[in-house]
Design a protein around this nucleic acid. Sequence first.
DNA 1: CTTGTTGCAAAGGATTTGCACGGCT
DNA 2: AGCCGTGCAAATCCTTTGCAACAAG
Lengths: 146, 146
Amino acid sequence: MNDALSVFIEYLHQNSLKDTPQRRVILKHFLEGSEHYSAEEFYQYLREKGEEVGQATVYRTLKLLCSAGIAKEVNFGDGITRFEVGYGNEHHDHLICELCHENLEVLDEDIEALQQVLAARYGYTLTSHRLYLYGICPRCKSKASS
Amino acid sequence: MNDALSVFIEYLHQNSLKDTPQRRVILKHFLEGSEHYSAEEFYQYLREKGEEVGQATVYRTLKLLCSAGIAKEVNFGDGITRFEVGYGNEHHDHLICELCHENLEVLDEDIEALQQVLAARYGYTLTSHRLYLYGICPRCKSKASS
DNA sequence: CTTGTTGCAAAGGATTTGCACGGCT
DNA sequence: AGCCGTGCAAATCCTTTGCAACAAG
């Protein structure tokens, strides 16, 4: 289950980068922590956990994890870059409640397939995509009506 | 054809905001100018056109146009907020070339419909969505192979 | 030992805001 | 006249970077 750790170390070696305690700490908490942290939030989270890492190192390491394919940037449109685990995770889209900001990861094969078709219609070869669905979750709907 | 202008003025009146020359200038060039300006780019564009408006006013007015439903924010994931005309424009998604950054506005009814279905599966009521497709356009593909 | 890494603080880019002045209504 | 809008510059937010001390290979 420490697959991500070995992938990371492998990545570091292959790029003559160094395996440091900070990097391991960040990876560990990143895998354990809640989803969709921004760099700043994640830094705060580490401090609460009593870990001593500089903010710049957090930013730098999160980018590193992205290069290694362990993390992925996500972007909900509020101008803040968030990160999610991207290793051993299939692709998914985001379904976000506009009221409580609950964030579900969803997937629909038909939509995925149609995107390829749509891109092909314009001669494009699709490499990736981001789909954000905004709505009201069932809980907020019932709250709103009461 | 000056529909947007009347909508804007109407919006201003209804919210006891003022109809100023700057606001009209910004609206005019916004409607005429190229798509997907960032606030900064648009500000530069105005200066080149010889218009004298402050940068802060550009930022403020673009947000105002969004509230009035004339503009819409778009967000390609590079941390810069861009604006597109959102009045009298049907909804569309974005197909972006990763090499030349060409940006097509595309639409597929089947995908739109499936999104509703997908959201409903989780009990959500969809209010909006953003879909960004990233790929390589036909021109860049042929360039790359040569 | 050589090179990459860290942490701090300063720099940076994008956007917002405080304030005094000027212009709508 | 009163209130909103403007423009400037300063402030803010998020993120990156320079640099000197330090640690990994």
